[in-house]
Amino acid sequence: MGNLGSVFNAFQALGVPAEIVNTPAKLSEATGVVLPGVGAFGDGMRNLRQGGFVEVLDEEVRRKGKPFLGLCLGLQLLATTGLEHGENAGLGWIPGVVRRLTPEHAELRVPHIGWNDVRAVKAGGLYVGLGEVHSYYFVHSFALQPDDLSVVSGFVDYGGEWVASVESDNISATQFHPEKSHKSGLTLLKNWAAHAC
């Protein structure tokens, strides 16, 4: 809820044709797939499973190699396991665990809410034209810790370094909300859409 509409509005504003789908079959017609999401890990996976999306996502994104963009919870669900409200299996596309944020300094509050700098570590891809450091809007209490750090394309400092984005072949995802990150966010979505459409 919530950011589905905002993501749609952002693509509308960019002139990128987009559709909100309720049935997995529709995904096979798409040239790229975006998985937004707010809420808890377990609920998110349950919704995908009950809607019959898990197999279709696997087929379209992993086997057919369609461009994929996960946003916020949509990034976290890529992990093998999530530890929010108990242990839940994720999609498992990016080996790793989603753990609660534990900033080193006690005065840093969780959730991590607001604009923070992302340090891009992969050239090209999502951050084309955005420079090495840019601010984006974050709202989260959990973060992905991937087994293999080479998938990480951006880090954010919040009492330690946390994963801000991952990019691995056709799979991209951001922990922050590009659809709420003003002009830099729209540029990032445009960069992704350039490959997906």
Binding site: S6, N9, A13, S181
Partner: peptide
């Protein structure tokens, strides 16, 4: 507002129930 508001948006006033919240959040309030 939410059609072109690409930053966090807060909406207040006359909210008296969870349904009132849902009506605003589903229309684009964060």
């Amino acid at each position: 507002v939410s059609r072109t508001c690409f930053m966090p948006l807060t909406w207040g006033g006359r909210i008296r129930s969870v349904d009132d919240m849902r009506a605003r959040i589903s229309r684009g309030a964060d």
